[in-house]
Every structure is written in C-alpha cells, then in structure tokens.
Design a binder for these strands. Sequence first.
RNA 1: GCGGGCGUGGUGGAAUGGUAGACACGAGGGUCUCAAACACCCUUUCCGCAAGGAGUGUCGGUUCGAGUCCGACCGCCCGCACCA
Length: 855
Amino acid sequence: MSRYEARAAEAKWQAVWDEAHAFRAEHDPTRPKYYVLEMFPYPSGRIHMGHVRNYTMGDVVARHRRALGYNVLHPMGWDAFGMPAENAAIERGVHPGAWTWANIDQMRAQMKPFGFSIDWSREFATCDPEYYGQQQRLFLDMLDAGLVARKAAVVNWDPVDMTVLANEQVIDGRGWRSGAPVERRELVQWFFRISDFSEELLAALDGLDAWPDKVRLMQKNWIGKSRGLQFRFDTRGAPAGFERLEVFTTRPDTIFGASFAAVSPDHPLARALEAEGPEIAAFVAECRRAGTSEEAIESAEKRGVDTGVRVVHPFDPSLELPVYVANFVLMDYGTGAIFGCPAHDQRDLDFARKYGLPVPTVVSATGPDFTVADTAFTDPGRLVNSRFLDGMEVEPAKVEVIARAEAGGWGEGVTRYRLRDWGVSRQRYWGCPIPVIHCPACGVVPERRENLPVRLPEDVSFDGHGNPLERHPTWARTTCPACGGPARRETDTMDTFVDSSWYFARFTAPRAAEPTVMAEAEYWMNVDQYIGGVEHAILHLLYSRFFARAMMKTGHLPEKAIEPFDALFTQGMVTHETYTTPGPDGRPIWREPSEVIRDESGARLADGTPVEVGPSVKMSKSKKNVVDPDEIVAKYGADAARWFVMSDSPPERDVEWTAAGAEAAARHLARVWRLVETLPADAPAAIPAAPGPEATALLRAAHGAIRDVSEGLEGFAFNRAIAKLYEFANAIGRATGDAPDLLAARRFALRTLAQLMAPMTPHLAEEMWATLGGDGLVARAPWPEADPAMLVADEVVLPVQVNGKRRAEIRAPAGLDAAAVEALVLADPAVLRALAGASPRKLIVVPDRIVNVVV
RNA sequence: GCGGGCGUGGUGGAAUGGUAGACACGAGGGUCUCAAACACCCUUUCCGCAAGGAGUGUCGGUUCGAGUCCGACCGCCCGCACCA
C-alpha cells in the first residue's frame, strides 16, 4: 500500500489538464454557457489565504458546472494599476511597471499549484497598453455620448498621496488608502455622469434577486433617494445678489415649526458675509481649518453664528427667522442651506437649545399642547399649530405644502439623490492616461482613436510628490488633433476603479482590437456567478453597473448585459488567532503562528516565553497572523488546503484557519485514498440485479450523497456538502465485507465519491478516478445523478411525542397509513407508560416524520 | 442615531415549524507496537449509577409541536451618517 503523495500527484494532474487544454473556454453556440468570476486580485506580490478561499469557491462552482454540462468561462486577470506600485517606486527606486509585472509572475506561480480550473489563455493585466488602450477608447466613446463631464469641483485632496479622492473613497474624513486627513481643494476634474443614472441604478436593484439583500440595501442607501421641497425664502438685510435664499427640506410639513435658517460655511452667502463681518469670517475660517478631520471631535457640538440676515416665512410675511452660518450644514447636499425645525429634528434641536431659539411643536401624537424637551419628536402624528395643516397626518401635509409652494411659485417638489458624479481624475503616474489634449486655441480636444493607446512614458522619476507625468520634460508635449498647433496632453490618469469596472466584459474577448466583440459578449455575458469580498459592495459593484449601462449606450455591450452580474456571492474572510508577547516598553510584540507552540497548558515561544493568545481576526501583515499559501501547499498539499477552507464555516462567514484543522483535512484525504487502495483490484464493476442488504445500504448512501452534495454545491452550502462527504466516506469505510455484490457497490461508491469530491479536491479525485477505472478525466466526467428509487427507505423510525415531548420511537414500514401508525403507537409500552392511563384526545401523524399524542 | 444581521456543547458549526447538537476540531479512554509515529475502535450538551429530567441569550405569545414564527428586552457584529 502506498501513501498518497499529494505534491507529486498534484503536479502530475496539473500537467495533464494543461496538456488537454481542459479548461479552455471556446465559444460554442450549441452548448449552454456558464460564466463564473472571482473578483480579480491586485498584484501586491503574494497571494494570501483569502485569495485561496475566494478562488477555491469559484473553482468549485466552475468544476461543478462543467460536470453538469455547461460550457464554462472561468478567467483570471490582474487589477494592476494603483498606488502601491508607485509607492514602491518612491521607496525603492523600482519602476512601477517592473514591480507590478514581477508581482504578477510571482502570484501566478503561487496560484498555479492550487489547480484552479482557469482558462489562463484569457489572462490580462489592466496595466497592459492592450487593455488600457481599449479603456481609452471607451472613455472617448463615453465622452461623445455625453457621459463624461469636466467641471470645477471642491474635491477631497489627500495631502499624503497628493491625489484627489472620490467621496466614496473618503472614510471618516481620511483617505481610504493613506489614512491621511482629507483637505478641501477646488480643481477642474473629469467626471463620469453616474448621477444621471441614479434612479435607474436604484430601480434596477429590485431585479437583482440573486444578490445578497444586504448589498442591495447598501447600494440603495448609497444612492440615497429622498423626496422633498426646494423653495426660496425672501431675505432681509442680505448682501446684493442674495435677495432669495434657496433651501431644501424633506419635511415641508414642519414649515410652521421653523425657528431659524442656516447655511453651510461653504455657502456663497457665507462667503459674501465673510468679507463684511469679522465674527463670521473667523467662524468660517475656523470651520474650514478644522476641515473634516476634527469634525469627529466636534460632532457632539452644533455651532453657528447669527449673520444678522433675516428670512421671511413663505406663509406669513410678518414672521421673520434669523439666518445662521452653522457647522452642521453640508454644502454638497441639497442647496447647502436649510430651515431649522428644532421640535422635529435632533440636530436642529441641539442647535436651538444652544442659541436659545424657540422650539414650536407642529407634529404631535397627543394634542396641541405637546412639547419637546431634549429629544426631537420624529414619530408619526398629526399636525398642530400649523394653520391650514392642523389635523392632517405628516404625509398628506407634505403634499399639501408642496402643492401650495408650487401654486405660489416660490418652491417645488423635488427628488434628490445622495449619489454624486464619479470623479475619475487622479494626479498620478501609474494609471490609465486620460486620452485628451489641451490646445490653447481649440480647448479640450479628444485624442484621435487611431493614436490610441496613449502610452505611459517609461522614463519617469519619482520623489513622492505631485504627478510625474506633469513633470516629465517631453511626454505631455504634442500637437492638437484639431488645428495641428502645439498642445499639451492631459496629465491626469484614471481612478483604478475604472479599470475594474469593465474587465468582466473584456474577458469575453480579451485579445480583440475593440474593447469587446458583440458576438462574444452576446454569448458569454452575463457573469452567472460573481464572487468576492463584501468590502466591494458599494464602490466596485455600483461603478460596474454604471459601466455596463455606458457600454450599452456606446455599443460595446448587448442590452441583456445592462446588469452584468446575475448572481453575487460575498464571501467571508480567513482569520487566524493573534499572538503577542510583552515588549520591553510594555507594548505587546506580535508573533507569527510559526513561532508559537500551542498545547493544553496554553501558548509559548520555543524558549518558553509565555504567549498571550488574542482573538481570531482577518489575516494581516501588521498583526503577523498570516499563513503563507506556499507553505501550506508544501506541508499538506493543495487539495487539503482547498478542502479545509471550504469546510467548517459557511462561505459567507469568516473561517478561522487553524493548523489542527488543516492537518485534519490532510488526514481525511489520506484516509479517502486508503479506502481506494484497499479495494481489491479485481472487485467487480457490475452491480448485480439484486444486491444484498449491506450492498444496498451502501448504494443508498451513495445516492443520498449525490443528492445532498449536489444541493449543497448549488446553494453555496459548501460546508454542508463537505459534511455529507465525510459521512459518505465513513459509510464506505464501514462496508468492509468481501462479498462480490458489496465489492461492486464499493467500487461504485468510491467512484461516486471521487466525482463528488472533484470540485473541492480535483487532484485526489483524478487519482482515485484513474485507479478505480473511471473513463477519461474526472474533470470531464458528467456529474452523477441520484436514482430516486434509491432515495426512499423501506422502513422509517418515527419519534412519538406525548404533548410535544418525545417519549418513544417506533419502527414502521415507509408510507404506512395513519390509522395503522396510530394502532402501533397506542400499543407501544413507552407510550402507554407516558400516558399513565390518560386517554389521548387527538393523534397527529405526520407521515414518515413524527407522531404527536395530545392528552 | 438610522438600517441590516446574528446569539445553539469546550470550539467551528448542523437542523423545509416535526427526534436539537449532523459533520469536523479539541478532549478522554482503549486496540495495535518493545516503544513511538501512523491507523483503527469507543465516549464526549448538562444533572443522574440508572430510570428519568433539564436544555438553543432573557421574558412572554402563537401552535398538537418553536432553535426556527410574533412581541418586548439584553448582548455582539456589519453597513451608513452632521444627508436637512
């Protein structure tokens, strides 16, 4: 008997698959296609266990679908532009391109040993001019189609990375990569007009029923639709040009509860007043200096300054309200100005209490005398103290106020979205150049399509500040495509989210001279199953949905691809325990798992130093709780790693990597191999017409496993599928007799086991399949089908409850009618004991499941 | 604050309203061995020798029957946010 040598077997089968082009996806209209895609990786240099889990999931789906007869497209590529490459250039003097391509080679080499069934012939990297040139083509087409805008905008400026960030990339006032506090700057930027699609992107979410509800909700909240009233106050005492103040509210019903108006420090009125009053100037300057970073600290306190300006209540000219500049009013939502209704908005209430403003109640659940203390009343109720609105409910009152505003010509009902246009300009080198030219005579002129790609220059230097393209001596110098005069290239490059917003479409025709090929896109789109981390729930997925629409409008995708991802699965992370030892300065020192010895008494280092075991969190270099996929493959084999990351935890949840778990996976696979090896070579393949009871039981187990594993794989319940495979293997292990019918059943069961395990452990499955005399490659074998006749048992065990408590068990032939079951139950001694002489009032018989006796 | 999700053994986790704890890890005991490794077998929710009883965060409700459905509360996790 030989031990299963995972590494040798894995290399062998990978070579066989390569040779056979087993995973090459060929356009074949006669077969149904299936497109499974995992979010492509950023080539940071090393793959980690999170990648392994992600690609294993995709591979399980791909291999299962292939076995079910689908023509599977399962590609891989590299999201290769981005800042880390430029940082490496700054820190180590390597060219970003060289650094990136070396990383790609290294990561590809790390991925190959896992045996993912990827069509590597379609591989590409987004930093390849072949790819980004097509992206420039898309940009120009979108420009022609009116989907691109160029406008001055206050942008988030990252002072560390010297770049602009999208609103979506600012997290808690800090750059999402650098973590530096973001400043405000005004620049002329390129934008994709995603906000034009707000309503469509929102409405279409309803149709994405194979997406997690959570992701759909996050996108809905991000788009942030709200209905309200936009209207104009007449002002008193305002500077020239500010005779009106336009505000937006979602609560027009509370208009009689208004006690002040407020504008953002960035509002034009605030800027105008800044010039006139030192108090306002000081406050505005302070707000601006505080920027976004200290807002968190100040967030508890609402502050403002009375401008001296007054506004007139639109329904009562005798009512005047003070206008404040207030730090809690945002310039980029609504009009940058509000009216404050303290009784029914907590922020307004806090502000009003601080500055002694009145708090009139206008909505009440109890009556007109209701007053508000420190908590604003935001529940439903009826309008009070509101003249013509009195007695109305909130929603009809909103409608009424909007109607009167529109009739009076001083306001209108509007729908607003939180979603803003997508600013794509980045002042960086390592990105896709924006293919336009600035001509002193003609203005902004698109580059000619025949001149694409606009390539990045190779000879650049990096010192970490500003944009190397802008400082390059010659690159930007060009001639105007329109007039032929001297002109300058745009030196901004595109946000890397652009690169990942259409790569899924490019995979359908990765070498084409156009961005896509309609016939290929028509056949392969949509992505049937998309798999990735929930951290991309908003940005990447929303941008991709926008791009699919843009590509449809510009003729690069068929109409059916308007929503490019039919089904989405967001997988959990791979976590690991964290280890620390006390450092000399009292601060803990992180320790790598390989340094730590775990036993029943706890954890220590090799020299005996006690180790503090921390919670299991996402693997990260900073906490040193990483395990290296290379080492795992060397130690346990790829199949064991694949098996382990798919077992135990449901795929949407985090899985904790433990050495014990990985070892157990490897042990189980070795055991499965022994089951194959202990089958006598001359065991018959043909199952006799009437197998004995033991053989029948094993065959039933095999068909049950086919049903349960199939269900598990289809429903993304990989952990349950694997549990069934354990059970099935255990059942085979128990069937040790050497009767010919049992040996034949065992051969069948083991072949079935090989097929069912193949999506998870493809190499071991090939080895088993070959040894058991299977036909061809198991990777190409059709998925087994369960025989319905083998799924029904002859006899069932029925638990018997008395008043809902389990008291007995009876055995009965399957499908026995209720009357016969009742007779059996009432004759059972345990039931009689539990009844203690009482007579049953009612008997509930759930056929073949349970009996409940009600006393 | 708003929105969403989740609370089950020592651990990860199973359970279309129908025998709670599948499967695995860990632990304990045993067989094999001179010994170890490997492997195999048994036990492993709690109390109890047993018969039996209790048990899915807490309290109520619906139901013949609730981990599952409903209500309230407690705790944890995720997302969003001066969004007017």
